[in-house]
Each structure stands twice: as structure tokens, then as C-alpha cells.
């Protein structure tokens, strides 16, 4: 038993890392929006999906061109990020901003709106894909030159595409850090997150910053989507749901509102899920199958919210009475 455990472990850890990076990038979107609006942007999971679909469509478009696989991938990433970010900004402008302007303190209303937007986006993509391609389960064309597998010590196999994915994810993490801590945009986001009124007094327009926050989170989610498509090859309009909930859990795990927290939470969650998904069925002889691995994230969410709601890196939010 121990031997099987060790034998599978390296690939499990690698798989967990990749999954974790994807969750981390999506989680960033949730945590950024929550930081400035105290709103769970339910529709973010669909932004992720739209990034994936846009990426795949780009790939299909470039399929017959002589461009090397890496360039095609980079183009897919850029277009995926752009389209995802645009949709995120449009959603904010059309669905959330009118509610904010109304000034009602009712917190259910934005939440219900977010759910509605989520549903709308799912079926819109389905509609577009159905009309365009007469089908909505879309397969990612294979990038042959990225599929070369390498043999590593410890019985690990790794494909070139996985290496590239991890590099991209790490680069995005660094870019994010740079944006949040070294640019005016990041500074404005943090200011609005802490105190919108004071930020306004200092010449920062909250509306403007909020739109940019959605764009940034959306871009990250879109990139995660393209990476997801690269990893799993097939997407459909409903792939956003599960990863969305899990990424939200990751954001809460790391501390909602904290970007490093979201990244950390994503990696941890991806690892736990892959470990559980591989080893639980093995050790229970199929009694607890892989279908239950989705529950891992959910159980973690409940436990965190019950025992440490501020997450690993977050701060407690104090309400003025």
C-alpha cells in the first residue's frame, strides 16, 4: 500500500500543482472583487469559462497556420484574457453598477443578480457556440509540439505543455504582485478596498477603480481558462461552475480579500483535491470514488467558515455598530 502511495505521489503532486495554479488564478478574481465591493462575484466562474472558450476558438482559428505551438498558445492566452476581461467589465457596468448607484443596503440583491448573470452567460455562450459550430462541447485542437513528454527522475512524466503552464502561472503571479504593489492601479485598488470614501477624497474614482478591478480579475480568470483548456482539452459552457466554487473556497481558505491568500489557497486546494481524488478511491477500494472529490473543496469551505473565517492570511472584518 505504501509502495503504491509513493509510486503515484510525484505525479499526484505535479498534477495538484497545476490544478492549484489554475484555482489560484481564478481565486484572485474573487478576492479582488470581494476586497473592493464585499460582493461574491458569482459570475466570475463564467468569466473563467469564457476565457477557456475564447482561447479554444483562437486555437481553432490558428490551427492551419504555420505558427509554432508556443506562439499559438500565447495568442490564445492574450485573446482569452482580453475577452474575459471585457465581459467582466461589461457585467460590472450593466448589472452591478446600477445596483450600487441605488444605494440600497440589501445584500441579497447583488448576490441574486450575480447568480442571474452567471446563468445568462452560460446560456449565451451555449447559444453562440450552437449557432456558430452546431455543437457546444468544444475540443481543443492538440498542439503537437507542446505534447512532447519528458521523463524525469522519480518516475515522473511531464509534458512540455505542463512545464509551460506552470511557467505562465508563475509569471502571472509575479505580474499580479507587481501590479498590486508597484503600480498606481494596485495602490488605488487597495485604497478603495480599505476605505472608498477616503480614496475618493484623495482623487481616486471608485467607479473607475472598480471597473479596472473587474478587468484585472477577469483577465486572470481568462488566463486560467485558457490553461484549463490546454490541460483538459474539452470545454463546454458549464465548466465554470465547479472550478468557480472551488476557487472561491480557495480564496476563503487563503483569506478573502488577500491576493497572496488567494494564490496560496488555490495551490493548497489543488493539492488536497488531487491527493484525495487519487488516493481515496484507491484506499477504500472504490467505496469512496472520484465523484466525491468535489466534496473535498466543499468540506474545506465549511470547516474554514466555521473555525477560521478570516482564512490563513486574512484579517477579521469588524462591523461598526
Amino acid at each position: 500500500m505504501w509502495n503504491i502511495f509513493l509510486e503515484l505521489l510525484p505525479n499526484v503532486i505535479l498534477g495538484g500543482l497545476i490544478l492549484g495554479f489554475i484555482y489560484a488564478l481564478i481565486a484572485v478574481g474573487y478576492t479582488l472583487v470581494y476586497g473592493v465591493l464585499q460582493l461574491i462575484n458569482f459570475s466570475h466562474s463564467e468569466i473563467f469559462m469564457i476565457g477557456a472558450v475564447a482561447g479554444i476558438e483562437t486555437m481553432r482559428g490558428l490551427q492551419n497556420t504555420p505558427l509554432p505551438g508556443l506562439i499559438q498558445l500565447l495568442l490564445a492566452l492574450i485573446i482569452g484574457a482580453l475577452i474575459a476581461a471585457s465581459v467582466a467589465v461589461i457585467v460590472e457596468r450593466c448589472a452591478y453598477r446600477p445596483l450600487r448607484k441605488r444605494g440600497s443596503k440589501n445584500r441579497l440583491i447583488p448576490l441574486i443578480t450575480a447568480i442571474g448573470v452567471s446563468f445568462i452567460l452560460q446560456d449565451l455562450v451555449k447559444l453562440i457556440e450552437s449557432v456558430w459550430h452546431q455543437e457546444f462541447f468544444i475540443t481543443f485542437p492538440s498542439l503537437v509540439d507542446l505534447n512532447t513528454a519528458y521523463q524525469l527522475p522519480l518516475n515522473m512524466h511531464i509534458q512540455l505543455k505542463s512545464i509551460i503552464m506552470m511557467i505562465i502561472a508563475i509569471i502571472m503571479g509575479l505580474v499580479l504582485y507587481y501590479i498590486i504593489h508597484r503600480t498606481r492601479l494596485g495602490y488605488s485598488i487597495r485604497a478603495v478596498a480599505q476605505n472608498p470614501q477616503s480614496a475618493q477624497l484623495m482623487g481616486i474614482s471608485p467607479d473607475n477603480v472598480i471597473a479596472k478591478t473587474f478587468a484585472l480579475g477577469g483577465a486572470m480568470g481568462g488566463i486560467a481558462g485558457v490553461l484549463f483548456a490546454l490541460q483538459y482539452n474539452t470545454v463546454n459552457p458549464y465548466i465554470g461552475f465547479m472550478p468557480g466554487i472551488k476557487a472561491f473556497t480557495a480564496a476563503v481558505l487563503g483569506g478573502i480579500g488577500s491576493v497572496p491568500g488567494a494564490l496560496l489557497g488555490g495551490v493548497i486546494l489543488g493539492q488536497l483535491e488531487t491527493l484525495a481524488g487519487t488516493y481515496l478511491p484507491l484506499f477504500t477500494h472504490g467505496d469512496i470514488g472520484t465523484e466525491y472529490k468535489d466534496m473535498i473543496a466543499f468540506l474545506i469551505l465549511i470547516l474554514i467558515l466555521l473555525f477560521k473565517p478570516q482564512g490563513l492570511l486574512g484579517k477579521n472584518h469588524v462591523e461598526k455598530i
Partner: peptide
């Protein structure tokens, strides 16, 4: 149906 319900929810809220 998702589209319809989504539109209903969002338009009602707004």
C-alpha cells in the same frame, strides 16, 4: 431555461 431565469433574476433586481 438558464438564460430565461437569469434574465428574469437580473431584470427584477435592477
Amino acid at each position: 431555461q438558464r438564460l430565461i431565469f437569469g434574465v428574469i433574476l437580473v431584470s427584477m433586481m435592477i
